[in-house]
């Protein structure tokens, strides 16, 4: 079992391969549907002008994301009224919804780890090879357990997107993941999809 201290460096990323279990420690940021669309529309494709605190948030998250991870997660958080935030449940959400955005977001912010569930497609795999980066699969639904690895909530941006959609800056310790897409073009998801398709075709041929 590999223990990793975030941020990554290129050498570590390049040494990782599909199937490696890892324990991550350090600072990462959550982000899902609204965040990805906001990042792409406002800062990458620039189809909408920055508004409100967009630019301040951009500056704040840049150094946090560079070399680190974005976590596809919409947590259950306690302490919303007192702002003494604590993660109560924090498993991964389905990553494929971010496929249209993820590659560009990785390149723009130099994100080297994308954490989620279900894997992603060819555009993200391509970005993993370029940046370089990896896709890390967390255990879907293991929300209480993962929340326990979140030692501190350091802050939150864009809370107006809603609790699940906000960007939560968290410090984790021994967060368990598995590398399922590496920087060398390998994807466990593509492999399993291909193998299971062959079996499905055989089963469909039977009465």
């Amino acid at each position: 079992m590999n223990k990793i201290q975030l941020p990554f460096d290129d050498q570590t990323i390049l040494a990782l391969k599909v199937g490696d279990p890892l324990y991550l420690s350090g600072v990462m940021v959550t982000g899902r549907d609204t965040v990805h669309k906001w990042m792409v529309d406002t800062f990458i494709k620039k189809t909408r002008p920055p508004a409100g605190d967009d630019l301040q948030v951009y500056q704040a998250i840049q150094p946090l994301l560079a070399g680190s991870c974005i976590y596809h997660c919409g947590p259950v958080v306690s302490g919303l009224d007192t702002q003494e935030y604590r993660f109560v449940a924090a498993g991964p959400t389905t990553s494929s919804r971010e496929e249209p955005y993820q590659g560009d977001v990785m390149r723009h912010f130099k994100i080297q780890g994308v954490i989620g569930k279900g894997g992603m497609g060819p555009k993200t795999l391509q970005a993993c090879a370029e940046v370089p980066g990896v896709y890390l699969h967390a255990i879907g639904g293991a929300a209480s357990l993962i929340a326990q690895t979140v030692k501190r909530v350091l802050g939150v941006y864009k809370l107006e997107f809603g609790v699940p959609e906000a960007m939560w800056v968290i410090e984790v310790e021994d967060f368990p993941v598995v590398v399922t897409m590496d920087a060398h073009g390998n994807s466990l998801h593509a492999e399993v999809a291909q193998r299971s398709k062959a079996v499905l075709d055989e089963l469909l041929a039977k009465a």
Binding site: P21, C73, G74, P75, V76, V88, A89, A90, G91, T93, I139, G140, G141, A142, A143, S144, L145, I146, A147, Q148, P164, P176, V178
Partner: peptide, 23 residues
């Protein structure tokens, strides 16, 4: 490993009365 993690999570949620899954 995934199943072991899932089962640990199930026990933890029951003990701490926290959601099994955040969704």
């Amino acid at each position: 490993n995934a199943l072991d993690t899932i089962l640990m999570n199930v026990e933890l949620s029951r003990r701490n009365s926290t959601p099994i899954c955040q969704d």
